[in-house]
Amino acid sequence: MDTIIEILKSVHPEIDYETENGLIDKRIFDSFDVVNIVGELMDEFDIEITAEHMVPENFNSAAAIYKLVQSLEEE
């Protein structure tokens, strides 16, 4: 989780990722941010994120991203 928050902080340091759960819905992240974050996640966790995972529910909060990474690591 700490690594994920670190990655997120590198894009938008001003956000409190412990509490924020509307990163996409509130348009805090735009598609550029999401692509950058996905690239970092794939590098860091050696997982494959594809277009089918690109839904707001997977990126609205640090916890959701963590859940996505976990599920992809298990595959």
Binding site: S31, V35, T50, A51, M54
Partner: peptide, 20 residues
């Protein structure tokens, strides 16, 4: 366009490899 062209291309293995 974002969901069906932008994201699939952004996450295309070839493009990711090139960026890397």
């Amino acid at each position: 366009f974002k969901d069906y062209i932008f994201y699939p291309l952004s996450l295309n293995k070839g493009i990711i490899k090139l960026g890397k």
